[in-house]
Every structure is written in C-alpha cells, then in structure tokens.
Design a protein around this nucleic acid. Structure first.
Lengths: 343, 343
DNA sequence: TTTATTTACTCAAACGATTTCGGAAATATT
DNA sequence: AATATTTCCGAAATCGTTTGAGTAAATAAA
C-alpha cells in the first residue's frame, strides 16, 4: 500500500501549502527578481522538502525550449562517435543542456524515425552523423523547416544543405595514407573501403586515387572493394583479393576494423606483415594499437571535432532568437598519419 | 527571408483549415472510433500535406505518458553496453517506444543529474547500469518514489532496492575462470579487478576466492589489485606485480582491457604467454580475440541480458495502470568460459 | 408518429509551468 | 500631506493535446 505517495509534484501543490500563487513559485524557481527574500527561502525550503522537480513537458510547452539536444549516430560503439559523445555531453552539460543520444544503427529507416521523434520532442537542436547509406537527406527537412538547427559531422550531406557541417579531411587522410605506402615502395595497392556514397568514402577514394595517379601507379579495378566495413565483409574481400596471384603488396583499408581483419587474414595465410604486405587503416581506433603488428592509421582527432561541434552549437543557440541570420558554417578538421609497425 | 515558414504545426491550425474542431483531429490521429470515414481521410490528407507532427510535450503533459524510456549507462563504448543498447532500442522501437540513451561516464554526480533530468522529462521507465562507484542508490529514489519503474542491469544495487534487477552471474564467471587456471596447473594467481564496491566486482572477487580456497591455494594480498579497469591503471599494477620475484604464473583480470594490457606488458618484458604466464579476461569483448595470443575470457551473453530487459520492461509497462502489484523480478543470466590461446 | 439508439461531431476543461498585466502595499519624492 | 515610485505578489491567459460531457442529426425500434 505504499502506492499512495504524497502527490506534491506540481508548482500548484507547493503554492497551496504555502498559501502563495503558482506564479510566485515559478518566479522563485527561475530566479526572477522582485520576490521577497523571505518568501524565496520559504519556497526553496518547501521545494527541497517535497523533492519537487520541474515538469519539463509543461515548461517546454510554455517556453518553447527544451534545453535538450538530440544526437544521432550510426553506432555508439564506433570509436570516433563514442569519443565525440563523451565530449559533447560534458560540454553541453556545463551549459545546462542535456544530450539525447540516439543510434540509427546505420539504418536509413531508423534515422528517419529518429528525426521525427526528435522533432516531436522539440529538441532545441540536432547533431547528426548520418547513415552510410543516406544520400537523400530530406528526412532532416522536418527539423530545418521548423527552425531546429542541425549540425552534421563526419558523415555529412554531399549536396548543399541548410545545416552546419563539421568534417574530417578524409581526402587528405587517404592521400597521406596512400602516399605513405608508395613512399615505402609499394606499387600494387588494394583499396578496401565503404561504398562511395557517403562523403567520407567518396573523399577517401578520391584521395587514394589522387596519390596513385600522381605517382603514375595503376588503379586496378579488381583491387577496389566497396562494402560495409565489418570483419565479415572484409574477409570476403580478402579472400577474393588473394584468390590468385599477383598479390598486392599493400592494403589501404577504410577503417581499422578492416585493417585488423586484413592482419588476421595475412597471419592465417602466412603472409608477412609488413614484409610482404603493408597495411594502413583509418580512424586511429585504439584497437589498431593493440594488435601485432600495430597498425598504421589516420587520426581524425575526434576531440577536436567534438569541441568544434560544441562551439558552433552554443553559438547557434545563443543567436537563437536574435535576428542574426544563421550562418551554415563548414569546418574541416585536419588529420594526421600515425605510423606504426604494419608499414 | 525563408524564415517565414507556414506555421501549420498545431492541431488547431489543421482544424481551422478544415473547418473542424481540434478534438476531431486528435481523434483521427489517435484512431478513435466514431469519426466518419470521409473526415478521417480528409484530415489525414491535410496532416500529410502540411507535414504535421504531434507535439510530444503537449501530448505527454495531457496523457502523462511519453512513450520514451531512459537508459543510463556508464560508457556507451563499453562492449556489453553497446550490445545491449542496440538490442533494447530495436526491441522498444517495434513497440512504439523510443530510447533516450544517457552516459554517466562513470561519474556519480552525472548519474544523479541524469536521474533528475529523466524524471523531469517524465520518461515512462528507466533502465540503468550504475557507475562503478555508486554504492548509495538513493538518487534513483526520485524515480521509484514517483512511480517510474526502474530496471537495473549488470551493475545493480547491492542492498534491497525497489527495482527489477537483471545481472550476469559474476560469481560463477570468476569461479569458472579461476578454476580453469588452477586446472591448468597455476598455483600463484594474481587478481586485477575493479574496486569491490560495485556488485560485479564484489561477486567476481568472491568467485575468485572461492576457487582458490577450494583448491587450497593461498590468496596473496600483494597480488590483489582494485582500481578502475583502464589500460593505464592496469600497467601500474603490472609494474608493481613484476617488481620482484616470485612472479605469478597467471593473472585473472576483471575485464578484457586489463587482460590485453597484461598481454602487452608480458610481451615487453619477454614473458611468454601462455608459457610462463596465463591470462584470463572478462566480458568476451571482441578485442580479446584480435590480439595475439587471443585471450581466454568469460562471455556474459549481453544479448540475453538485453532481451530479458525488454521482456521485463514491456511486462511492467503493460501492467502500468492496472492494480497488479509491481513485482521486482531478479534474474541472473548464466555465463560461459571462452577458452583461447592465452591459457 | 413517437421514442430510443447510434453516429459524428463540438465545447470546454484539463495537464503544469510561464508570463503579462495590474493591484496593493511599502517606500520615496515633492 | 499628497503624489510618485518601487517592491511584491496574484489573476488569468497561454502553450498544444486529450477527453468527458453534451448536442444535433440520422437511423432504428416501438
């Protein structure tokens, strides 16, 4: 019978007990001026005592502000996103915003649903890294059309879109990685990466090609693989790649999971890394440094991306109701090659 | 000047256009009976046309139901939680609930804040894996006191708490792991694990001790280490452990990150694994299988935990307003030893 | 034809917090 | 002492949706 809890959870209830009006309670709670110090402390005491907590729905309905930001990521477990989540959450938390983390699981359908839900809950802004397969970004329109600012990062719209865009320099990253392999004497380089549909893989492919052609190396069609970058898919491609000679002397993988899979495959086949085969990954996932040999990769500086997102977001939220026109900033964060034992 | 969007985003606006009352629109949207087919389709068409989306705040305020579930995890990047997030989200999504993922970052303060925020947004229920340092669970009271059901998993309250509890069999897992090492002939086993404050580490410690004493092996105090289980802390403990002989012949690590750190340390010191030193981890993190040698570990079956959570949650939400008394189910999911090359 | 019943809809009151407007009391100014 | 100003607080409207009560029209039953 403990179900009957003291239903002291509205501003009205507190007002009644203290013989005040709800308006006064609200003013105290929002630090408005023109409230007598005596009543203020009386109210605070009662609020404390009954454990009152503001109903965010009622408040948000009235003020048209939720103090919460939606975040859509493909998978929370991916290194870059996990890093970014942590930093963004801390950054926003100190400013009184809370982060609603959502996972699209790389499904466009889910991403659509999440846009709808986030709009329905009237978040103040949305941060998003899209699905690998999102080419049509129109499901984000419900947000932008209704004045909900959107910030894309990492996986961003390829075509112009009214949103802030923060990305890594994928072109240069791939260029650096490929050039590194070429400098080491590699002549036949295989490329296993994501479908060139998402900006990150379009750019990485372009960077790869640039380095190859610049060095007059052939781009062999049979050595280019595009698919979702998980271990299973990687193994399939690797099998195809080593079905018949000549073998490539290097692999540039679109992410570290694929690079690690390549390493495992090489070990099984008795191919020496880096002796016979050099491998470069992408993202500087911590996993790339715990395997033997450790894998050369490209650092994307997720912390810098995250901080940039927070900065831009706070700027946008500040100018929210002012007449300042929203600028759709585009920022590219530089990358860095991390040389390890696999090359 | 595109700021002036057609403000057709309330039920009232649609009602006005169609010369109907808001009530009717609402009834259509909620599939209520007693609405003429003609009007129903007229309304649906208009809703579609103007891209109307229900305001979750207004709806929630009225119905006292948000259709969203809060989830608090220490870190979204941890393998077990990442797995569980994905499964829970999918499970709830099909039932029309959406998941609000929050990360406490293993900070008790943040966890407290998250409880407050989730209560403020009046989620229908909360799922939580606590901080490593949460011994006092009273900040969850704001939820339970106000009839918000709470389900704990993995890291759960040690003392009785009015919530559903779903946990892995940490005691048995540690017992299995330690017994396995003993069966392989290990006599001096070091234990590096989390502070025995959180249930998972209390239980794992107990399981370790049980196996040791059962086999009349001494538990050496200097070989027991308790701290947050990241790579840096692990290395410190390993240094202490191998400061002077005699060296242990096995290490049971509280998680796979620590086990991997031990592996790296052993390689640096030229200690052969599994020859001179055997290593067992915990969690069956995918990382434990990509290192060389691959690491023996304990699988916690995160998918089973997640499915159990979904089942319990839906049961609770179904009985929400019925007079059925809430049962605080306690479920323990079995574990399994995964033997690999490190032992 | 009169009386029930069903159908299709509207009215208006909630939900809980915020905020504009204005009133009363206290204080300051002339 | 009369007026102006400031300080503190309450009444009421509002945000957008839901829902019980009520109403008019259409259909069924008597």
């Amino acid at each position: 019978m403990k179900k009957k809890f003291t239903r002291k959870n509205s501003i009205q209830d507190i007002a009644e007990v203290l013989q005040l009006s709800a308006a006064t309670i609200s003013r105290v709670l929002n630090n408005h001026p023109h409230v007598h110090e005596t009543t203020r402390s009386k109210v605070m005491a009662m609020v404390e005592q009954v454990g009152y907590k503001r109903n965010a729905m009622a408040s948000g309905l009235r003020t048209n502000k939720t103090n919460s930001i939606g975040l859509i990521v493909p998978k929370v477990s991916m290194y870059i996103h996990a890093e970014i989540i942590t930093i963004i959450q801390n950054g926003l938390h100190t400013q009184g915003y809370n982060l609603i983390i959502c996972q699209s699981n790389d499904s466009v359908e889910m991403e659509k649903d999440l846009c709808q839900t986030l709009y329905a809950s009237r978040v103040d802004a949305v941060i998003a890294a899209s699905t690998l397969f999102t080419t049509d970004f129109s499901h984000f329109d419900i947000l932008t059309d209704n004045n909900v600012p959107v910030i894309f990062y990492d996986r961003v719209p390829v075509d112009p879109y009214p949103a802030c865009i923060i990305r890594g320099d994928d072109f240069h990253g791939a260029y650096l990685a490929t050039s590194h392999l070429i400098e080491l004497g590699c002549k036949s380089i295989a490329y296993i990466s994501g479908p060139p549909v998402s900006n990150i893989y379009i750019d990485r492919l372009a960077g790869f090609k640039k380095a190859m052609t610049q060095n007059r190396l052939p781009i062999v069609k049979e050595w280019l693989f595009y698919h979702e970058l998980d271990a299973d898919n990687a193994r399939k491609s690797l099998h195809r790649l080593f079905e018949s000679k000549p073998y490539p002397d290097a692999i540039f993988a679109g992410n570290d999971v694929t690079a690690i899979a390549a390493l495992g495959f090489a070990r099984e086949k008795g191919i020496a890394v880096p002796g016979e085969l050099k491998i470069v990954g992408y993202s500087n996932d911590p996993r790339s440094s715990i395997v033997t040999p450790s894998i050369t990769t490209v650092d994307q500086f997720p912390a810098r991306i995250a901080n940039q997102i927070v900065t831009e977001l706070l700027k946008i939220l500040e100018n929210r109701n002012s007449d300042v026109d929203i600028e759709y900033t585009q920022v590219t964060i530089p990358v860095q090659l991390i040389r390890r034992m696999s090359t």
